[in-house]
Nucleic acid binder design. Structure first.
Length: 934
RNA sequence: GCCCCGGUGGUGGAACUGGUAGACACGCAGGACUUAAAAUCCUGCGGCCCGAAAGGGCCGUGCGGGUUCAACUCCCGCCUGGGGCACCA
């Protein structure tokens, strides 16, 4: 069994017969199996990376054998930060870095024998690809969201509506717009019209608070920020107000939420998306505002009102103050002269605190009284208005009614500012702590008294609406996505600005807007993005292009569509291709994309569906997250004096009281927990002369720890070495055998021998010692048929459920049993080979040809399991006395229950346990077990 | 704090809709073959106890209860690891 020879042979067959190329075939059912688009990093693969690829490859090969036309493509998400950071450091164009990395990546993928149709390879940084990414952006720029029809519609229709009726009777998902008539619309300047339209467009320019990362020199989306730091690189992030291109994703919040129901996705991902979208149902309430003297506050002749949002309108009688966010637009108007300087000081203090300080200091309460009051809409009581930084400008209306009795934050605030705290839930004492559960009966609440909380919420909303004080409302935590990045290596946003600074979409015929060459990949001295360095880069030679580029997730939001028709020059994909291939049937990738890519890609697809460009709303029906493979680190003890102590000795009396540090050493230097001291001395110079204190048997031992696989922990295992030593098939089998696909699990190379032995045993079923095929055409006996059909049955089900670890063990069992029987029969071994081929394609291809086939095993047909051989005639019943299994009894399966009972009670072993007592009951589950209750 | 997912031998893990807990594999121990090694094969391996042995008993799926003839599986209450969300009104 020569691995190199086998792999070369199989590769040649696949290559010659072009077995992985697919095209639309209306006569066959399709199956689209997709891996999450990798970013080709320079570091290469470690054993954790291919896990999902192997699983999806097995599934794809399986479906192909079952007669499906399988689309299983691969490509690269090749725009991104690392190549650009490298460019900044070295000056090497990111395209070159990317090209090199892709070559490495491809080589590593190829050696594992994946069944990708490489003729469909795509790259997001390819102008033929990003042309369409830009095209989609323009479609969003040219669309608005109609809440009446619940879908995106062309902005041209909206303009027509404006011309006829102004913005009356428009129910759009948009930013606040003053009402205007058709006459007014016609009288607006170009600039005014543009500004208004931006408030409706799904891709729009707006000044907002963004996550600015100074170290990366760019803004980041919410999902790219973790705990106040950038997800990539871990650099500090601050809040900054900037003009940015945004995508009005919030318009889709409800549909994104509801669409989750029907998806076959892991519950954890759905839950993460639900949290991220964060839908909450509540009510807005307007509070009339008055001065300290009780005079109404008026602005331009209109009485001022403060709109708050609450999910607990039932607690309105418990409200004792109002609070607004520091950024709230009414802060200035609400500030009484007497408090002006105090408020200004407070605002300055808030501004100086970074986002991270604010998060870290969440329990610290701060705020400032503004000197004005809100009039309670039911009691007429005057509630003081505060500005407080625990109120977020970006959530709800940026203002709240403070109900300290029933909200913890409000309670903290009221305690600090000595505001009244009242309970409106019967029997709850809220002096010390807020009672925030939505349970109980209302009290001190006028018309709500006696109602339960849920009833009271409904009643309060109805009453508020009836009296025109506000209305029931839904709010989302989800924010519109910031779409511009102040970076070089991304898709240019296809927008140019005219003389008046009005943004225009580049005509679609002029796409792609190509990324210009620049001398440096850094911002300009004026702080403009790197694209500003390309001074000749102008639309039609005179208009300034938008200088920011798209974020990393732009291309990956729709790439799955391009795979369906990757070389189409007329469209992003032909309608027939979309109809035939879409949507993705199985999507495999990591769960770290739960609130990033997986939401964007759903949003993007919903949008295209609205425009009638794709015939499905959800991009992927079934999603599976492969678990992470953790590293098994090796660590040794170093005493403070530099001596190195073997792990067993460390706890002996001689050393246990000395202080020791644990050091990571390369896993390659360890065989189990035995360390190769000679190699260790060579590995690090300070170990060269160190004193090693070994075990009594002379060995030197390390301890193990399961943790993330990383270079710094010296626990990275590279697949190349393993593939060279054991072959790709063995590697694939072992990765699957390790445990359930979805589960995180530690990598331990030791176990790979089991899979290697399995492959050799398989080989010996076919081949003699001398390498000659040894197969007969004899009719298999019952036992052999049974082994085969049980295997087919189990493996078919297991692959369908992606329970690949149990499938591998089923193969091991079958091969062990066939070996014991000395089975060398073609009728058994040939179907077995087909079943195994998705897991071990190289070996199976080789043996398939050895059996005399000319075409590839990839083209074979998945065998059917035969019911006859799955059913057994007799069964070894476990017989339990009082629930405890005592003995076994072999009985025919078709024996009626009365007969079984007779047999059981007549059995010597059972009689012994009964000791003459009469059984109370005999429970018989046919084909399962028997339980005698005494 | 809220939500989701886990916890089974020395190790990775198996167990269908409640029905023989520990499949398969690693590892370890002993043995066969061999001048030797590799390779291969055989036997044993959850814990405690009784027994010379054959065999038998008790305990055992994070912990404590419960439902049931029967619980890794269902219910209640905890402990613990991982992940998500979080001054989100």
């Amino acid at each position: 069994m020569n691995i190199q020879q086998i792999e070369e042979f199989a590769r040649q067959i696949w290559d010659q017969q072009q077995v992985y190329r697919v095209d639309i075939d209306p006569d066959k059912p399709k199956c689209y199996v997709l891996d999450m688009f990798p970013y080709p990093s320079g570091a290469g693969l470690h054993v954790g990376h291919p896990l999902g690829y192997i699983a999806s490859d097995i599934y794809a090969r399986f479906k192909r054998l079952q007669g499906y036309n399988v689309l299983h493509p691969m490509g690269y998400d090749s725009f991104g930060l690392p190549a650009e950071q490298y460019a900044i450091q070295t000056g090497q164009h990111p395209a070159i870095t990317t090209e090199n990395n892709i070559a490495t990546f491809r080589r590593q993928l190829d050696q594992l024998g994946f069944s990708y149709d490489w003729s469909r390879e795509i790259r997001t940084s390819d102008p033929d690809f990003y042309r369409w990414t830009q095209w989609f952006f323009l479609l969003m720029f040219e669309s608005w969201y109609n809440r009446n029809t619940q879908r995106a519609e062309p902005i041209a229709e909206l303009i027509r509506h404006f011309e006829q009726e102004g913005n009356y009777n428009v129910n759009a998902w948009c930013d606040a717009v003053m009402p205007f008539t058709a006459e007014q619309w016609r009288s607006f300047s170009k600039k005014q019209k543009s500004d208004i339209l931006l408030r409706y467009r799904l891709a729009y320019l707006d000044e907002t608070w963004v996550n600015w990362c100074p170290a990366l020199g760019t803004v980041l989306a919410n999902d790219e920020v973790k705990d106040g730091r950038s997800e990539r690189g871990g650099f500090p992030v601050e809040r900054r107000r900037m003009k940015q291109w945004m995508l009005r994703m919030t318009a889709y919040a409800d549909r994104l939420l509801e669409g989750l129901e029907a998806l076959q996705w892991p519950e954890s991902i759905k839950e993460a998306q639900r949290n991220w979208i964060g839908r909450s149902y509540g009510c807005s309430v307007f509070f009339e505002l008055v001065t300290q003297q009780g005079q109404p506050l008026v602005h331009e002749g209109i009485p001022l009102k403060l709109e708050v949002f609450t999910t607990r309108p039932d607690t309105i009688f418990g409200a004792t103050f109002l609070a607004v966010a520091p950024e709230h637009e009414l802060v200035a108007q609400l500030t009484d002269d007497q408090y002006k300087s105090a408020v200004q000081d407070y605002l300055a203090q808030v501004a100086s605190r970074s986002e991270r300080d604010r998060i870290a200091d969440a329990l610290h309460v701060s705020g400032q009284f503004l000197g004005s009051f809100g009039k309670h809409p039911f009691t007429g009581q005057l509630l003081p208005v505060y500005v407080a930084d625990y109120i977020l400008a970006t959530y709800g209306t940026g203002a709240i009614m403070g109900v300290p009795g029933h909200d913890e934050r409000d309670h903290r605030f009221a305690s600090v500012f000595s505001l009244p705290i009242v309970s409106i839930i019967e029997g709850q004492n809220v002096a010390e702590d807020a009672y925030s559960l939505k349970e109980g009966v209302l009290t001190n609440s006028d018309f709500l008294n006696g109602l339960s909380v849920p009833e009271a919420i409904q009643a309060a909303i109805s009453e508020i609406e009836r009296r025109n004080l506000g209305q029931g409302r839904v709010h989302y935590r989800l924010r519109d996505a910031v779409f511009g990045r102040q970076r070089y290596w991304g898709e240019p946003i296809p927008i140019y600005y005219d003389e008046e600074g009005i943004p225009h979409g580049v005509p679609k015929e002029a796409l792609p807007v190509r990324l210009p060459e620049v001398d440096l990949y850094l911002p300009t001295s004026e702080g403009e993005p790197p694209l500003a360095r390309a001074q000749q880069w102008k639309y039609e030679g005179k208009y300034e292009y938008e200088k920011t580029t798209m974020p990393g997730w732009a291309g990956s939001s729709w790439y799955f569509l391009r795979f369906m028709d990757p070389h189409n020059n007329e469209a992003f994909a032909a309608p027939e291709a979309l109809r035939y291939w879409g949507p993705v049937d199985l999507y495999v990738g990591g769960d770290e994309h739960a609130t990033g890519h997986l939401i964007y890609f759903r949003f993007w697809t919903h949008f295209l569906y609205d425009l009638g460009l794709v015939p499905f709303q959800e991009p992927a029906l079934r999603l599976v997250n492969q678990g992470k493979i953790q590293g098994l680190s090796c660590l040794i003890y170093r005493l403070d004096d530099g001596r190195l102590v073997s792990a067993g000795q460390r706890n002996s009396d001689a050393y246990k009281d000395l202080h020791a540090t644990l050091l990571h050493i390369p896993v390659a230097l360890c065989e189990g927990d035995c360390v190769d001291i000679e190699q260790l001395r060579q590995w690090r110079s300070d170990f060269a002369e160190a004193e090693f204190i070994p075990e009594a048997d002379g060995s030197f031992r390390c301890v193990h720890q399961v943790e993330k696989m990383s270079k710094s922990k010296h626990n990275v295992v590279n697949p190349d070495d393993l593939v060279r030593k054991y072959g790709a098939d063995c590697f694939r089998l072992y990765e699957m055998f390790l445990g359930p696909l979805e589960q995180d699990k530690p990598w331990d190379t030791k176990g790979i021998d089991g899979c290697y032995r399995f492959l050799r045993r398989l080989w010996r079923l076919f081949m003699q010692e001398n390498g000659q095929l040894h197969i007969t055409d004899e009719e298999p006996v019952e036992a052999e048929w049974r082994i085969l059909h049980r295997l087919i049955h189990k493996v078919t089900r297991d692959i369908e459920q992606l329970s690949l670890n149990t499938a591998v063990s089923a193969f091991m069992i079958a091969v062990n049993e066939l070996t014991d029987l000395g089975c060398r029969k073609r009728a058994v071994l040939e179907p077995l080979l087909i079943c195994l081929s998705p897991f071990a394609p190289f070996t199976c291809e080789y043996l398939w040809h050895a059996l005399g086939h000319r075409s590839s095993v990839v083209m074979a047909s998945w065998p059917q399991s035969d019911q006859r051989y799955l059913q057994q005639l007799t069964f070894d019943y476990p017989v339990a006395i009082n629930g405890r299994t005592r003995l076994k009894l072999t009985l025919p399966l078709d024996l009626p229950e009365e007969r079984i009972e007779q047999e059981v009670l007549a059995t010597e072993g059972v009689r012994r346990y009964l000791e003459g007592r009469k059984p109370k009951k005999v429970i018989i589950v046919k084909g399962r077990m028997i339980n005698v209750v005494v």
